[in-house]
């Protein structure tokens, strides 16, 4: 299980830019994610403006649950940055603890989401019922997938961090998590407030 069983190449230890390799890779990852979300949200915005009649569908989204999930994600972002703060102070145990809080946030988000979706699907608002709902489920679904993946990666990193290992990864995964949070910050008004 230990990752030191896989010694890293010298290449990984170099840092000509001054940014550590893992962090640099996450910046590039975020750059490539910007255009993925940009594609789906851009398509949604264009359709939404071109189709005023979608407002009658949008009014069925649950603003309260959306707002609650925003609070959940903002708070999980806080604990992610607190984990980074702890990692900076070389406190692996504390960093791991905060990461688990973030994971709890991710789990809460997904549970609320599935509750919300079950409710909507039972009300007949399925992904095929209207193209507004197609966009709704696709955009939120892609975002939810990122939440899920982020949670899993954070669990792996938290286990290592608790042992004081690879603490620099705490910051890297935190950056990814803040990005996922920012995407939701924009999804919230797009899907839950513009009615």
């Amino acid at each position: 299980m230990s990752s030191s069983a896989f010694p890293r190449p010298i290449a990984t230890t170099r840092s000509a830019t001054g940014i550590s390799t893992g962090k640099l890779a996450v910046w590039w990852l975020i750059a490539s994610e910007i255009v993925i979300f940009g594609g789906v949200l851009g398509s949604y915005i264009m359709h939404r403006i071109g189709h005023p009649e979608w407002a009658s569908q949008a009014e069925h989204t649950n603003t309260w649950l959306g707002a609650f999930n925003t609070i959940v994600l903002l708070s999980s972002s806080l604990s992610a940055v607190l984990a980074h703060n702890a990692a900076e102070m070389k406190d692996g145990k504390k960093a791991a603890k905060f990461l688990w809080f973030t994971i709890l946030g991710a789990a809460t988000f997904l549970v609320v989401k599935s509750f919300e979706w079950t409710h909507e699907i039972n009300a007949g608002l399925t992904i095929t019922s209207h193209t507004f709902w197609s966009f709704y489920y696709t955009a939120a679904g892609i975002h939810g997938l990122h939440v899920l993946v982020g949670g899993i990666i954070m669990a792996v990193i938290a286990v290592d961090a608790a042992k004081g290992k690879d603490l620099q990864r705490v910051e890297a995964v935190g950056l990814y998590w803040h990005f996922v949070d920012i995407v939701w910050i924009f999804l919230f008004p797009l899907l839950y407030i513009s009615k």
Binding site: R8, T12, A25, V26, I153, V156, A172
Partner: peptide
């Protein structure tokens, strides 16, 4: 499965 997921694989500063 461990470190490769999203490239958080950096060397300790």
């Amino acid at each position: 499965a461990h470190g490769d997921g999203h490239g958080h694989d950096a060397h300790a500063p």
